[in-house]
């Protein structure tokens, strides 16, 4: 899957979980940049992403991500 397609799928998960159609994501986006991306919603985002791509992460993997770009890299590596 192309990276741009991964980004679109991740964005769809964010829009669904955070109920916000206006979300824009880039490689540099962090939780501070997105309204309501708090610790509880973070769980729902990870669950949504793992379900969407039919992949699983470890807690160590997700804790290592510094931004959306690193999340996309990790997803791409598992596809």
């Amino acid at each position: 899957m192309e990276r741009v397609e991964i980004l679109e799928n991740v964005k769809a998960v964010f829009i669904d979980v955070l109920d916000n159609e206006d979300i824009e994501l880039s490689d540099e986006t962090t939780a501070k940049d997105v309204d309501d991306w708090d610790s509880l919603n973070h769980i729902q985002l990870i669950v949504g992403i793992e379900k969407k791509f039919k992949i699983r992460f470890t807690s160590q993997e997700i804790q290592s991500w510094k931004n959306v770009g690193e999340m996309l890299n990790a997803i791409q590596a598992k596809l």
């Binding site: 973070h42 769980i43 990870i46 669950v47 793992e50 379900k51 699983r56 992460f57 470890t58 807690s59 993997e61 997700i62």
Partner: peptide, 9 residues
């Protein structure tokens, strides 16, 4: 039916 170890869910 589903286990998400990454977020203990």
């Amino acid at each position: 039916i589903e286990v998400y170890e990454s977020v203990s869910t």
